[in-house]
Structure formats: structure tokens, C-alpha cells
Nucleic acid binder design. Structure first.
Lengths: 190, 190, 190, 190
DNA sequence: TATGAATGAGTATTCATTCAT
DNA sequence: GATGAATGAATACTCATTCAT
């Protein structure tokens, strides 16, 4: 499906990202997406099957870039806390620097706008973090609770801080980020 | 003269809640809402100005019921931890028992589908919790960090647990809820 | 159909007149008419069969008041020119003083918004003028041309002067009205 | 790529003309217009912004064709009466041969269905006639009265004759048209 | 008599998608 | 591959009219 002219493919994804963020899925018609990408509406259908496919592909692409960021510089041989710290700060960085992408993910995750199939595909990237937690639990450093809880109390709160945007992005700034990390670590460490 | 009954008003809100949850705002047309509420499409406009107004009013109503639940049995004279515990468990209860409502709030909070005005009106109910935190900080029991962080690491994670629904609702069950609360408390206590 | 409470009947006709003039037939819904008349929409149907009937009745009423005015003080024994003068000035008076009514008649006469039946009923009031013209023709004072032409060149032009409203009402004022009458008379006299 | 053809644009204007004449603006819905033009409702919006724009454009187009007709063969060097005769007969011709167009103009001019802007644009074509009248007045051939009066008693009556259609079109036929012109001229000549 | 509630059919307009070049 | 034209089906919303009191 994806042809040699990646320019248009990418422009379409970018336009979709912007419009869905600003107006919501319900007010991001194909015609507007095409216009913003400087492309004919018909052209969209050369690269994507339909609107759902366009959204799905954007979701998967962003999820992938998110994961790539998350494990940047991470090595599974690091001690548990150090490893967790690396990943957590990476994610905080991503939220702070890739605001559009992060907002889009939030919208997808709280809305029935993504195929179940795409959703699953987006999830499978987190395995290294789950492995790290398992190791931490074996070593008695991390509480013996479900992965869901661990995620809910460490990574997920970052989404809220992002959503509060104007008033709260400061919470993720270099110098005040320590407090946030401390909360995260305190909530899971034994 | 027929008299305007609350039945229809409520049926419309209920239908909207269900459809927006199941299909998303973008696929919850007025015609479907009317059908589900067993009412003519035109009737909607006797009770609501337009679709936006319908959504806004539903949001505000649910936010209000949420707050009412949250502070049920709470007394500002309770010791900080006890007070926090009361509120936190109330909210966990709400999430567990009012799944539809909770999912709708998540969708609203991560989507540009709500008026800024309605959004603000929905926020003003949390004051007692903020007051409690302030007291806890003065007493040296709660970390001296911003309200956003406190909220992000105590209340907000519950939304994630809810969203994971099938796999994770167990995390909020009576017996395993303690672990979740412990995470919350650990992340904010000094 | 018309009941004892003429107040509401009249208020409805008045409201219709105003709304149709200001917004056009296409933007004068029954609900607005009811509101302006300070009456329930359902009440309209106690006095009128439907919207068409309401418009028709208003048309006929105004046509009748127009004719009454037109022949005010007219006596079929007057000499032809004097008689014509009387009627013509009466009509000019009406156009000048009953602007709303005159505009409504213009709209009805240039639009398919009136039943053919009502239209015919509105026409039959002009007989005395036609009789006068016939007499004038017999006396050799008025050109031997069709009634349509006589009307077109004497009475009808007044509608245009009215329609030009702001810029042109002056043409119908007491002192400048003579010029207009002179045109009318010149165009039909032998 | 299919190319936007004038056929559809014209068909739409024609359909609108017919429907507005036969049923009135209030009963000429876009769906009927589309059907009559053998086009999808959505297609209308490729050529016109909305219904108002469609009506406006039709009005302006017809006004332009009317003016073109009116001054066909007219030369500002002609003697006043001859010049007036030329224009007047041209207009009578137009009314007789372009009945649909003439009726539409009447409806527009007696109804709040046209934008003020479009209305103004439609007016500016008559200048040569006004110039002619001015010259006639300077030469002492035409009464020193306002342009409104001159128009009301010469051109405007033709609209009435048209409106009476069935019974009266004969008044505009070649042989009986002289009587009508004579009325017009008599009413303005000194 | 009078009403506000209720509604089915309709209105202008938009949308995701396909057609023809 | 790329496009603007074209469209049937849908969308939010309105209307003339009727219902139930």
C-alpha cells in the first residue's frame, strides 16, 4: 500500500495528528486532512484503505516511536532502580517534547476510535519494562503487585500532567521532575 | 396540556452516555440517541439546545454525581491519612460501580468534545480534597509538591485501572484494593 | 372558525403580517408567529385551518381594508376626472400610511404564496373603478384600452414608489404627490 | 480527473428559476432543485456556497441579461423620444419573451429573499436610461420629476402586465403594444 | 378555549468514498 | 500515481401540525 512517495504518506499522518488533536476525531473530515496535507482527497485512498485505517496506522506509528524513545539507552543489565529511572525519564522526556503525539495517544486510549487489533499491536512494545519489573519483584525491590498497578502508578500519571498542559508542564521540567519521579518510585518500591 | 417529564430528559442523557461510550462521540448521532431513548429526534431539542449542550449537560451531571460520591462520609476534621483514605476509597468505589460514567468522564477529559466552560464547572467540586492536602502538607505528612502531582499519583491512576477493564478491574476489588491504596499513599506521604 | 375572542385572531394576523414582511414567507414559521402574538402554536389552529389558510385570510382582510380606503368618499355620480382623482389619492394615501399592509400585498401579488381562490376574492373589490373607467371611455375622456393597461399605468406604479421606500416615499408626500397624479392621468386621458 | 462543466452550473440555475417561480422560494428545497437538474444534492455545493448564494447568483445573472436586452441597439446619440422608444420596446420584448426570468425578478424585488449586496449589484445597469432621462429633461421634453417617478410610470407597469399573464399578455403583443407605449410616453412627456 | 409537549417528515448541508481522466 | 468532480447516505436541526390535559 505504501508507495515510494513517502512525502505524501507522512504529510497525511501529520495532518491527521494535528486535526484530530485540535478538533477531535468527530471534526477531522478527510477533506480537511487532505487540504492540510496539500493533497487531493482521492489521494488519501492511495495510501490508506479508509479513514479507520489512516487512524490505526497513525496510532501504531506513534506507539512505535514512543517505545523507541522509552528504551533509549536502556540496558537490561542495569540494576533495577537505575533501569526504571532510565525508562521513566525517557517517557517523561517524550511527553514533554512530543506533546502532539502524546495527546493523540491519550485520545486514542480513552476513546473507541481505534481498532482492537491496532490497540493490541500498540501494546506489545512494553515488554522490556514488564521484564524489568519482574526482575525487581524477584529481587524484593518492587512490590509484588500486578503490572497494571505498577503502570498505573508510575507511567500513567505522566499523561495527566501532560493533559494539564499550561499549568502543569512545569512539573515535567528538568529541575522539578525529580519530585515526580520520587512519587513514582515511592509508589512501587517495597 | 402534556407536562414536560423528567423521564425523557433522563432517558436522553442515559442514551447519550451509552452511545458515546460504545461508539464514540463521532458515531453517536442524534437519531441514534433519540431511538435509544425511545423519543423522536425533534424531542431532543425540547430539552437541549443542541448536541453540544446535551453533551455538556451530561458531563456536568456526571461530574456532580462523582463529587458527591467522592466526599460521602468525609469530614474535614478527620486526621489527614484517614480523610485521604475515605476519599480515595470512595473514588475507587465510584470507578468500580459506575463504570459507564467513569469511562465517559475519561473520554471527555481526553478529547476536545467538551466546552471549556463546562470543563471548568466540572472542576470546582474537588476543593475539599485540595484543602485536605494543604493541611497534610502543613502537618508534614504529605510531600510539599503541587496539587497536580498529588492528583496525578493518587486519583488519576484509577482511571487507567478502569480503562483496562476486563483484565484489571480485579485490581479494584475489595480485597486487592489495599495494594492500590498503598501505592497511592506511598507516592505522596513524606 | 372565528371565535368570540377576536383579540387572539387579530394578534395572529398582525404577527403574520410583520413576520412575512420582515423575513419572507419562507422564514416566518408558525412558532415565531405564535410567539410574536403571545399565543401557543396550538392556538393558531383554533382560528385557522393551517398556515395557508392563515395567509389567505390575512390577504383577504388587507385587500378588503385596501378597497374600503380606495373608495372612501367616492360617489359614482362624480365627473370622471374628479372620481378618478378621488380614488387615486385614496390609494396613494393608503400606500403611504399603511406601509406594512401595502408591502404584504406586493409580496402576495408577486409570489405563489396565495391560493388562486383567495387571489380572485381579493380582486372583486375594484369594480367601481372599472365602472368609472368604462364611463370615462364612453365619454371619450379615457383612452379606449384594456382595464389592465389602465391599472398598470395608474395604480400599479404606486407600488414601485412604495417599494423604493427610503428614497422615494417623498414622491407620495402631500406636496409632491401632484406630479405623480399628473403622470397617472396623462397616461390614460385621451 | 473529471472536469467541472458549465452544464451543471447552468442546469442548476435553470432548475432554481423554474422551481422558485412555480412553487415560491419557500417551497423550492435544494433536494428538488438537485433532482430537476439531474444532479446529486451534494453537487450543488460544488458550484454554490449555499442556497442564498445560489439565489443571489441567479438574480445577478438574470439582471445582467435583462440589462443587455434593454439597451440592445440603443445609441446615446439618438433623439430622446427615439432612444426611450428603443429601450422601452426592448424591455417589453424581454418581458414577453423571457417570462420565467421576468417573473423571477418580480419575486425577488418584492420579497426579502435577496441579499442587499446582490440587489445593489443588480441595480447599477440602468445608468444609460437615467442619462437619457436627464438629457430629455434638459431639452424640455421630459417632465422635471424624479427618476423614481419616471421609472414607476414607464417601465414598472410592464411588470403588472406580465403578472396578469394569461389575460393580459396580449397587451404586450406586437400590435397592441403601441397603446401601452403611448401610455408610458404620455405619462412622462411634458 | 387554550396550552406546552411531542412528533414524523422534511431542510440545508456535510461526509467518506468513488469516478473519470 | 494523482487529481478534482461527483455522489448517496448521513447529519444536526426545524417545521407544520397534533396530542393530552
Amino acid at each position: 500500500m505504501r508507495t515510494k512517495c513517502n512525502d505524501k504518506y507522512d504529510a497525511l499522518l501529520e495532518a491527521t495528528l494535528k486535526l484530530v488533536n485540535d478538533c477531535g476525531f468527530h471534526d477531522a473530515p478527510m477533506s480537511k486532512i487532505a487540504k492540510l496535507a496539500e493533497v487531493s482527497p482521492a489521494t488519501i485512498y492511495l495510501y490508506f484503505e479508509n479513514k479507520q485505517d489512516l487512524i490505526n496506522k497513525l496510532y501504531i506509528k506513534i506507539k512505535a516511536s514512543f517505545s523507541e524513545h522509552a528504551f533509549n539507552g536502556y540496558d537490561s543489565n542495569l540494576p533495577v532502580k537505575k533501569g526504571f529511572e532510565t525508562i521513566w525519564y525517557n517517557i517523561a522526556d517524550y511527553k514533554l517534547n512530543k506533546i502532539e503525539e502524546s495527546m493523540f495517544l491519550s485520545q486514542c486510549d480513552n476513546t473507541p476510535m481505534i481498532d482492537e487489533k491496532a490497540r493490541l499491536q500498540g501494546l506489545k512494545h512494553l515488554q522490556p519494562l514488564l521484564d524489568l519489573w519482574e526482575r525487581g519483584q524477584k529481587e524484593g525491590i518492587i512490590k509484588p503487585i500486578s503490572n497494571y498497578l505498577l503502570y498505573a502508578y508510575t507511567v500513567y500519571p505522566l499523561s495527566f500532567l501532560l493533559a494539564m498542559e499550561q499549568n502543569c508542564l512545569s512539573c515535567l521540567n528538568k529541575d522539578s521532575r525529580l519530585a515526580a519521579f520520587q512519587c513514582a518510585w515511592d509508589s512501587i518500591k517495597v
